[in-house]
Every structure is written in C-alpha cells, then in structure tokens.
C-alpha cells in the first residue's frame, strides 16, 4: 500500500515517501506528546516501495515490501483544525476507512479546551469521509488510484446531477 498523509483538514492528501534525503523513513508519529494528549509511534521496517500493516501483541508495525493490495492505501489523517472552543473535530461519515492506530492532538496547556484525533487508517477503494476545519468541511474520496477532495457543495452538486441523470428526483 502507498502511504498518504492529510496534514490538516482541507489539505490535499500527499504521498509520503518512504525514502527521503535523510534516509529511509523509520517511523510514523501520530498525535502529540503531553498533558491531555496521546502520541502513537509506528515503526517502519524492511525494504520496498510499499507498506503493509502488521499487528503484534505490543503494537503495530509497518513492513515495507512489494505488496499488491488491490487499490487499498494507508493514510495518516489529521482530523484537527485550528483552535475553536466548540468546533467538533473528527472523521465523520466514514465509509471504507479502518482505523489502525490513533493519537490525540489538543489545545491548551492541559489539553482540555478542545482536541481531536490523528489516525493511521487503511482506506479501501471508494472510501469516503469528511473532515471539519475551523470554518468549513471537506469531503475526501479514495478511488483506488487517486484522491478526490470536494467541498460539501461540490459533492452535493455532483450527486444531484448523477441522480437526475439516472431519472430520479421531482420535476417542478
């Protein structure tokens, strides 16, 4: 599976290279360390262009190799937008998203003003989910080969057109 990262709600998913100029990526970190927070660390071992998740009794490991995963991908999804006391942050309306491990990102010294998750997930082809940023919402869809990012209005417009083209709806 290819590894992608959504750095913050609303951002386009980017491919996370396993080999960097500083050397091979050795781990993926989720969340934050500190009070009211939770940090998850996932080691990456082996060689190869793709990764697969292996669960052990002690945690999760990403194993590199030449894996054929039928369109699935791995994604590090940060669901926490800018600080807002009452904004709800999370992964909403998710379909085809299997969370493997999560960390917690929070605001304030005690981490109690607001918080949300950053997760590592296996994303199946056709999977969709929605993230809230401070002011807006964004829909994400993994087609099996690429990501599609839409605002709720764009998504509704596309679905409405599809439905009418298929003969649905009420004519005025």
């Amino acid at each position: 599976m290819k590894l992608y990262q959504i750095e913050y709600p609303g951002s386009a998913p980017s491919h996370l290279g396993l080999d960097t100029e500083a050397g091979p990526l050795s781990e993926v970190r989720l969340g934050e360390a500190g009070r009211g927070r939770e940090e998850g660390i996932i080691p990456i071992i082996g060689e190869g262009p793709d990764v697969r998740v292996k669960k052990t009794d002690d945690g999760v490991v990403l194993v590199r190799g030449n894996w054929d995963d039928e369109g699935r991908c791995l994604a590090v999804i940060n669901a926490v937008g800018g600080y807002d006391r009452y904004r709800s942050y999370g992964i909403f309306d998710a379909q085809g998203v299997e969370a493997i491990l999560s960390g917690t990102i929070a605001f304030g010294q005690a981490g109690r003003t607001n918080s949300g998750e950053e997760i590592l997930a296996i994303v199946a082809p056709g999977a969709t989910f929605r993230l809230n940023s401070k002011y807006a919402s964004t829909w994400y869809m993994w087609t099996g080969t690429e990501w599609q990012v839409e605002s709720p209005e764009e998504r509704k417009a596309r679905l409405a057109l599809q439905k009418v083209e298929q003969g649905g709806g009420e004519w005025l």
């Binding site: 409405a160 709806g169 004519w171």
Partner: peptide, 13 residues
C-alpha cells in the same frame, strides 16, 4: 430551464 429537486439539491436543465 426545467427544475428538478433531489435530496442533494436543485438541478437545472
């Protein structure tokens, strides 16, 4: 236009 209403919104043809 003709106007259609579906759950997702309004479609103009």
């Amino acid at each position: 236009v003709h106007v259609a209403i579906v759950d997702e919104g309004v479609v103009l043809v």
